[in-house]
Amino acid sequence: MSKLKGWKDIPIGAIVPHGGTAFDYETGSWRSFRPVHDRDKCIDCLDCWFCCPDNAILAEEGKFKGFDMMHCKGCGICAKVCPPKVGAITMKPESDFRE
């Protein structure tokens, strides 16, 4: 029987190359409701950004920028945390957006 390989000769397995690789994974296909944003009503409080479980709300310079539809799972929490007097986010069925 030939000599067994030492641990240095065996290729390294199970490598995760860097942190945050999950960002490449699409979870947007889970969505059955899509959030729709009204720029005129929005007061940029960013509560929706803070409460999104999927980081699917993009903020830039302290302002609401848009949705990350690749990751939005359509839970509707953003529409609920939007202050009732503002109501800038509404949930629409995903079927409205497909041909």
Partner: peptide
């Protein structure tokens, strides 16, 4: 705690992790 994790939609513990 970045996007693309596979928690259920509307998961409150995922919001906790993030915040």
């Amino acid at each position: 705690f970045c996007a693309g994790h596979r928690a259920c939609s509307g998961c409150a513990p995922a919001i906790t992790m993030r915040q």
